[in-house]
Amino acid sequence: MSVYQRPVHLLWWLERRAYVLFVLRELSSVFVAWFVVFLLLLVNAVSDGTASYQRFLDWSGQWWVVAINVVAMLFVLLHVVTWFGLAPRAMAIKVRGRRVPAQQIVAAHYLAWLVLSAAVAWLVLR
């Protein structure tokens, strides 16, 4: 029997908006990896001494480094929103035999995020 198989286009994810969003979400990981590189450069500069740290600050102030970091920030925020948004579907948490509602799980994630961010900011800016 001859059947018709619809071919899959190379850029199949352009077919639907949800797929585009999905691919952007997955690409956020590239910027997470970039952040690790950036952080390790900072650590290296700080451990090498004052002059090296100043050179890092100058380098990170260049327009193209700032541009990369702004784009990276947008992707990382997409990661945060999608990750926290999907979290309650991956975990079924129960407290005293009752299922915790999804919104509360999401809220707990954002709360932890705020607290940790504040702690990091305090540690760095103190």
Partner: peptide, 20 residues
Amino acid sequence: GMVAALMVPILLFLFGIAFP
């Protein structure tokens, strides 16, 4: 994914954008 979501935004904001 969890650690990155919790920690990366603030560090990236401070060292990648706010200070530069």
